[in-house]
Amino acid sequence: MIRFDNVSKRYATGHEGLSNTSFAIEEGQMAFLTGHSGAGKSTLLRLIGCLERPTRGQVWVNDRNLNKLSNSQIPYHRRDVGMIFQDHRLLHDRTVFDNVALPLVVAGASPNEIKRRVNAALDKVGLLHKERSMPLTLSGGEQQRVGIARAVVSKPKVLLADEPTGNLDPELSKEIMELFMEFNRVGVTLLIATHDIALILSMSQRIIKLDKGRIVADGWARK
């Protein structure tokens, strides 16, 4: 589902975000990405979402070579990849419903379909009763769940999360992780960047560890 072939990313500042990285994540797999901040986790996710282009090597997502994607094709690629951020990236002047509906509106779905799917997504994250609320009136955990609902509303095959539990207490973090596990169970491929080692060690999933832009460990955690 996701494959990196000798991918390097060097920024204009000379900083090397990723150097010569290769790995693959099969369809329906779930993996954690760990490492210190600056180890290249975000760079890796940004390459998958095509927010950036690699300097060298090839990135494949969903059997699609992202290097061959023209700028005008990028939006369509992003519709297949749900992205979740530490800072949620919600629109604060729109209701929860409208925030979650955004990917569908952008893709030109019909009003009926939007209503049906948004309700389903909000139901999944347990926020159906908050659809008319404004994001800023919600707690951090709730805002993150709105972000998750937005990422899954268009049923992408791939879900990326960048420090989704960064600002949450352990209890809420666990809830969020369980939510991710649920998506994984219905076949969504997940890649989650986090430095919350304690949390991921308790989940017995694949862990890819990055350091200074290189993969230094890749394997399954065992309790």
Binding site: S72, P75, Y76, R89, L91, V106
Partner: peptide, 16 residues
Amino acid sequence: HSEIEIMKLVGATDRF
């Protein structure tokens, strides 16, 4: 600015 950014993140085309 930030609204446009978010729309681009969720796959909005430039035309949209």
